[in-house]
Design a protein around this nucleic acid. Sequence first.
DNA 1: GTTGTGACATTAT
DNA 2: CATAATGCCACAA
Length: 129
Amino acid sequence: MRASRRNLHALLSPLAKQRARRPTRTAPDENPDLQALWHAVAMIPAGQVSTYGEVARAAGLPGRARQAGYALRISPAHLKLPWHRVVGAGGKIVFPQSSRHFREQVRLLRAEGVAVKQGRVSPAALAHL
DNA sequence: GTTGTGACATTAT
DNA sequence: CATAATGCCACAA
C-alpha cells in the first residue's frame, strides 16, 4: 500500500492534532472571529461608544483589541457598521488629528449627540457591555 | 521559514 | 501629563 507523505506524517505525529488555536484558512467574510467582531460592533447603541478592547471581549476574544481594529479596517461597506462608535481605551479617538478619519468620526459622533473634546469622548458615552 | 506593521491595551517608569 | 516595554495576533513582504 502506498501511503501519502501527509498521512504518514500524521501517523508519526499524534500530538500534532492537539491544536489549541485553529488556523484561519477561511475567507475573510467567513472567518468566525471576524463575524463575531463585526457583530459586536453592530450592537453598540447609537449615542454611545465602546472600545476596541471591549468589542474584542464581547466577541469572545479577550486581549485581542488589535484584531478588533483589523476587523473594522477590512469590514465590507455593505455591512454599514457603526465604526465611529469604536474608540481607544479611555475614550480616545485613535486616528491622527490631521486625518480624514478623525474628523469624520468626530462629526458622526457629534451628530449622534456624543460630546467630543480634545479627541476624547465624554466618559458618560461609554457603553457598558 | 522570518520580520515588520498595525483603526490596541495594560503596566511600569 | 508622556514614553517605553510587553502582550497580542493576522497579514504582507
